[in-house]
Amino acid sequence: MTTETDAPLNGKIICHAIGARDGRALADFYATALGTTVSRTYPDGQGNEAACAWYVNGAMYLFHTSESFTTPAWPEEELPFHMDFSFPDVAAAEKRLLEMGATKPDHQPGGQHWTVLLDPSGQPFCIHGTY
């Protein structure tokens, strides 16, 4: 007999929140990479833009400004979280992302399977071909 506590949960991710020294700049970077634009902003207590968001496939991606943000010390330290993206033309996507302010670190643990880039805030993300 299955009880309510035994039943699987049926949750879904509705928001990914990512901090950076400049939340708006990072929101614009990733929105451009995914072919969208920032569609919502949130003010802080003084009315200043504190967070920016856009939606993809029903999930919100929220980028907030954090004055205490520090760039991750990757690859020396493990990352608690990172994002992976797929593109039909990985080489063209890499070139465009680099033009937009990403950088490519020397450390590339994915070999031919994926490429690690650093976003403008220094946080690693990976790009792959379309599956």
Rank of each mutant, 00 (worst) to 15 (best):
I13V: 15
G11T: 13
T115H: 01
G58K: 11
H107T: 12
T5N: 13
W54Q: 02
Q46A: 11
F29A: 06
D89W: 04
W74N: 00
A27H: 05
L26R: 03
S121M: 02
H107P: 01
E76C: 00
I13Y: 09
M1K: 11
D44W: 07
W114P: 03
Y131V: 08
K95T: 12
P120D: 10
K95C: 07
G129F: 03
L79R: 01
A51D: 04
V116R: 00
G58F: 06
N10L: 14
C126K: 03
A102T: 04
P120I: 12
P75H: 05
P80L: 04
A7Q: 14
V38A: 04
D22Y: 00
Q123N: 12
A33L: 08
E94K: 15
A25W: 05
W54M: 05
A91L: 11
P43S: 07
L97R: 08
G101C: 02
P105F: 05
T130D: 11
P105Q: 07
A33K: 05
G122N: 04
A50Y: 14
D119Q: 02
A51Y: 11
V38R: 03
H128S: 09
A20G: 05
F63P: 07
A59R: 11
G11L: 14
P120Q: 13
A102M: 10
T36C: 10
G101H: 00
I18L: 13
S86T: 15
Y42E: 10
R96P: 05
W74G: 00
E99R: 05
T5W: 13
P80T: 06
F125W: 04
D6H: 04
L34E: 07
L98T: 05
G47E: 09
T41Q: 14
L62M: 13
T41H: 11
P105A: 02
T65I: 01
T70S: 11
T103W: 05
C52K: 08
F29I: 03
W74D: 00
D89P: 05
T71K: 14
A51G: 10
H113P: 05
P120S: 12
E4K: 15
A25V: 09
A17I: 15
G35E: 09
L98C: 02
H82C: 01
T32G: 06
Q108W: 03
I127F: 02
T115E: 01
F87T: 04
S68C: 06
P124V: 00
F87D: 04
D84Q: 06
T65S: 09
G45I: 12
L117E: 06
Y131C: 04
N48F: 10
F69Q: 02
V116T: 01
E4D: 13
V56A: 12
I18V: 14
V38Q: 01
L9Y: 10
E77W: 03
G58E: 06
P72L: 00
C15L: 15
M83H: 08
R40V: 07
G45D: 14
H16K: 12
I13Q: 11
Q123F: 01
Q123A: 09
D22W: 01
Q108I: 07
A31Q: 02
F125S: 03
Y55R: 15
L9I: 13
L98N: 04
P43I: 07
C126R: 02
K95V: 07
T2F: 14
P109L: 07
C52N: 12
S68Q: 12
M83N: 10
P80W: 10
E67V: 15
T103V: 07
H128D: 07
T37D: 13
P105L: 01
